[in-house]
Nucleic acid binder design. Sequence first.
DNA 1: CTTAATTAAATTGAATACAATTGAATTGTA
DNA 2: TACAATTCAATTGTATTCAATTTAATTAAG
Lengths: 144, 144
Amino acid sequence: MNNFNELSIKNQLCFALYACSREINKLYTPILDEINLTYTQYISMLVLWEKDDIAVKDMGDILFLDSGTLTPVIKSLEKKGLVKRNRSTIDERIVNVTLTKEGLELKEKAKDVPAKVYCSVGLDKEDGLELYRLCYKVLDSIKK
Amino acid sequence: MNNFNELSIKNQLCFALYACSREINKLYTPILDEINLTYTQYISMLVLWEKDDIAVKDMGDILFLDSGTLTPVIKSLEKKGLVKRNRSTIDERIVNVTLTKEGLELKEKAKDVPAKVYCSVGLDKEDGLELYRLCYKVLDSIKK
DNA sequence: CTTAATTAAATTGAATACAATTGAATTGTA
DNA sequence: TACAATTCAATTGTATTCAATTTAATTAAG
């Protein structure tokens, strides 16, 4: 296994990442069920808990998602009463998303989610940090 | 950034993996367009190029996908004339997938795909191997 | 042998992703 | 100022992905 430059599925670095990402996603499902969120809804809330009142575009830049994906997710969060969408009066192209009281309160319930997931992931801190570093190296390289 | 156990999107190891996987997937799109395959179709063909005449179940175990995902993918490959589906006579629950002549011939056209993608990924060999190792460490840990 | 349990594939329904397009608003420029 | 180019969100259409269920076949247990 000296390089990935072969048509063997086991040798495919990109496939390993893809499978890994999907398997981790499945770990979230039962944990996020408890707070009635999907993974995409959850990461959208993470952004909002960190920066309330943010444009859809800016959420998309952080999450690497476009409005085609985000618009329906934000609408679903709005339907749950967790966020509100407000078109900017300064620039009417922009829709800003803000947390409701319920949305803010959910943060408390969500605070144990990362720990629960990492328990199942089975990496020690050193490997976790290394994996994180390599993922962002790829992301930065692609973004250029 | 000493741990990932916080509700900050930038600190989320799992998010990094998820974003990384999706961004790499986008790199494949224009490259696989040239041989008229989607990513899911491509990894299915990778399995078949390595082991022709394989049950849907066994493809699924390799790709971490269930029949709900694989059945339509295999049918789309069949429609393109790349594979055939044959129900086993020994055990009629099983559907075996085999390559057609066209499916086998496509392998030659696909052989440069990995190299083209890795050029864009921007990792040297050492980092690539490390990322691969960590992904499979997670996958093995989840699979138990 | 007969029935219960298991297995494999397919189906259904919900939620993503993403490319491409649309429409409205804003910005840049001659 | 006019008008072309750009930007942002939404929409549309296609392809996944997965949980849950269904159907048919096989295996196991009594």
